[in-house]
């Protein structure tokens, strides 16, 4: 006879297994990294064999891919999109610009560290990262999901105030519905 804990483990395993093998990526080319996404998705690199495919609206998406630098105008939209996604949701920071601003470190219109505004699961460095490294980033994310370590929706919800303060520092005209989870 299996007890509750064990059956919960099995259920978790199955759920995480399917979660990791079915990653719907938000179709949002936020920055110039978007140019390598078609290559990743299409015939030579074919991300679909890992279950990675595009999703048109945030409601259906699991992964938000921040492809490169974020202008402040885009940051507002990214936050909106991120908040509309359903948990568990993951964020991949793509390219050096998401880590430290990259070559736009001194630009007045791009943010420098993405994780200050939304939680990030995996960073892929490089400018631009090759499709291979994009896929390896996804595989890293899959590992984290299988271990149950990747769920940033929860982190975001719990530290919402801190994130909000950072976000509002940049976005002056805050006209968005509240994130009421």
């Amino acid at each position: 006879m299996i007890n509750d804990k064990d059956s919960q483990k099995i259920v978790d395993y199955i759920q995480n297994f399917s979660r990791k093998h079915s990653l719907f990526v938000m179709a949002y080319g936020t920055g110039c990294g978007a140019i390598e996404i078609p290559a990743t998705m299409t015939s030579r690199y074919d991300a679909e064999r890992f279950g990675i495919r595009g999703a048109a609206t945030p409601r259906q998406a699991d992964v938000l891919l921040i492809t490169g630098y974020l202008a402040t105008k885009t940051l507002k939209r990214v936050i909106r999109v991120y908040e509309q996604m359903q948990e568990p949701k993951y964020v991949i920071g793509f390219g050096s610009c998401t880590i430290n601003g990259g070559m736009y470190y001194d630009s007045y219109n791009t943010i420098n560290a993405l994780e200050q505004y939304i939680p990030v699961d995996v960073y892929i460095n490089g400018c631009m990262p090759r499709p291979e490294s994009v896929i390896s980033g996804f595989i890293k994310l899959q590992e984290l999901i299988q271990q149950g370590k990747a769920d940033n929706g929860k982190r975001y919800r719990e530290n919402l105030e801190w994130y909000r303060t950072n976000q509002k520092k940049i976005i002056k005209n805050w006209k968005m519905p509240d994130y009421n989870w």
Binding site: G31, C32, A71, T74, R77, M103, S107, Y108, T110
Partner: peptide, 23 residues
Amino acid sequence: VGYLHRAFEKLIERRNWLNAFTL
């Protein structure tokens, strides 16, 4: 537009003639 504005014309003014190529 403006979702991708990263002000690279401004940034080039801070780089030298060859550094501008990265941008």
